[in-house]
């Protein structure tokens, strides 16, 4: 599969479908045993390029607790840029920027253990952003968060995406594919679908792909097939309500 720069790609699949393995390929944390993986034109198998690749592609992992190195928020964000050997002025600037983007600026001097799960995950994202990457890979980064934490994280990502960031989001929550341009479905280590998210939503092949369709998607498809919704309506509550209300002239 190919991912163009500037797109938002979702990768979905059950536990054990190979999602995480795929994610780690993008950062050269794992390299293919067969085949090749090129990131920004660089072969991940080449040990001399791996460090360069990790500068361009940052990752956020599932468990926020296990990716925080430092005890103070701003020191945590600085960890990545420090590894790049930047000047202290440049590091401070990046830290400030990353904390602002993720809405954690006021927490800069707080101890990391006192943050909530959602805040910790945004801190992990801030740490990744401070590397000034061109692409962010989220490996099930929302799966341990509550609805509020998930919403906050997705909001930050949406903003970054608008500014041109490439986002690859590994998830098992199908509702989350709605934010993405493209979706890949993995099933037992194989790519079962890769294409526009819209095409996946329209298809009735969810069951065939071995994933469960969210009830709202089902309702949306049924309403469309009965001609009650516009073809172009997206399966979100707001879009569906607006469309239906307009049609019935309420």
């Amino acid at each position: 599969m190919d991912v163009e720069e500037g797109r938002w790609v979702s990768v979905v699949g059950d536990n054990g479908s190979g999602k995480s393995t795929l994610a780690k390929q993008l950062n050269a944390l794992l390299v293919p045993t067969r085949g090749v993986c090129f990131v920004m034109g660089k072969d991940t198998k080449d040990p001399s390029l791996q460090w360069e690749i990790r500068k361009d592609v940052s990752m956020v992992f599932q468990n926020p607790e296990n990716q925080i190195v430092a005890s103070v928020v701003e020191e945590e964000v600085a960890f990545g840029p420090e590894n790049l050997g930047l000047t202290s002025v440049e590091i401070e600037e990046r830290v400030r920027w990353a904390l602002k983007v993720t809405g954690l600026f006021e927490f800069a001097h707080r101890p990391t253990y006192a943050l909530s799960g959602g805040q910790k995950q945004r801190l992990a994202l801030a740490g990744a952003l401070a590397m000034k990457p061109r692409c962010i890979v989220l490996d099930e980064a929302t799966s341990m968060l509550d609805p509020e934490g998930r919403k906050d994280l997705v909001e930050v990502l949406t903003r970054l995406h608008h500014e041109g960031m490439t986002v690859v989001m590994i998830t098992h929550r199908l509702e989350e594919i709605l934010f993405s341009d493209l979706t890949a479905v993995l099933s037992r280590g194989k790519l079962a679908f890769y294409g526009e998210t819209k095409d996946l939503l329209d298809s009735t092949t969810f069951a065939l792909l071995g994933i469960k369709e969210p009830p709202l998607f089902k309702l949306w498809r049924n309403l469309k097939s009965r001609g009650l919704l516009e073809e172009s309506t997206y399966p979100t509550v707001r879009n569906m309500v607006e469309d239906l209300v307009e049609r019935l002239c309420l």
């Binding site: 950062n27 992992f61 296990n66 590894n83 590397m131």
Partner: peptide, 27 residues
Amino acid sequence: FQRAEELAVAMEARCYRGDYGRSRMRP
């Protein structure tokens, strides 16, 4: 052990390679 392993991966993903070429935010 599980945490240590995950942390090591996360540090590597953030370009950590020991002392080599590392600077400090607050020297």
